[in-house]
């Protein structure tokens, strides 16, 4: 059963990856990337890495690709499909880069990976790939990498906020229609017209409106 699943997932992953670059419509490219990521998750499942598979789906197919879909759907591009851009020099350069990548991957695979491909496959220890084991490894052997990458994410988040602020995206002033916890707990107005216009409690604003 496992070889069948492996070939379905592997063919799916490759087809998805080809679709990303071959399809002209941006949204279809994004969707085939999603398909590729889901196929990768299936491959992780075959390797008994359930946690990695779930994280792959939640983080990549879920959160990251959602942003891609958002951008493509909002910015549009539905009317004008992507055209191949750049002249001959760009194409030659891209061929060169692809060739370099292929050589690098071949070196990596032939150099190390093939030694693990035997009759039996790697030994499977109970508990392998479980969240408990991964957590233990992250907080012992790979603590430094774990902490450094969390700092990287923190920097990225702070940077995003700073960029949004500079462009005026994050408003410092009183936001119209902001709601607070207190307002949610005890609604002062009961949905009057004045309340909906001012965004605040209708009762207080009424005298100002009359004057």
């Amino acid at each position: 059963m496992a070889p069948v699943f492996f070939f379905i997932a592997a063919v799916g992953a490759i087809a998805g990856a080809i679709g990303v670059v071959a399809l002209r419509h941006p949204l279809y490219s994004v969707l085939s990337l999603v398909f590729h990521l889901l196929s990768l998750a299936a491959l992780f499942l075959l390797l008994r890495a359930e946690f990695v598979a779930a994280a792959q789906v939640v983080v990549y197919a879920g959160a990251v690709m959602v942003l891609y879909v958002f951008v493509v759907a909002y910015v549009g591009g539905a009317q004008e499909p992507m055209a191949p851009s750049g002249g001959l020099p760009v194409r030659i350069l891209s061929l060169f880069v692809v060739g370099a990548l292929l050589v690098e991957l071949l070196i990596a695979t032939l150099g190390s990976g093939l030694s693990a491909v035997g009759e039996e496959g790697a030994a499977y220890a109970p508990g392998f790939g479980s969240p408990a084991e991964i957590g233990q490894l992250l907080l012992t052997d790979f603590l430094l990498a774990f902490e450094v990458s969390s700092f990287l994410l923190l920097i990225a988040a702070v940077g995003a906020v700073m960029l949004a602020r500079r462009r005026g995206g994050v408003d410092d002033g009183e936001v119209e229609g902001r709601i607070s916890v207190a307002q949610l707990l005890s609604p002062e107005g009961l949905g009057s017209m004045a309340e909906s216009v001012s965004g605040r409690s209708g009762v207080k604003d009424e005298p100002e409106g009359r004057s």
Partner: peptide, 8 residues
């Protein structure tokens, strides 16, 4: 996490 994955 399985539930959240399918939610995604």
């Amino acid at each position: 996490l399985y539930v959240f994955a399918f939610g995604a």
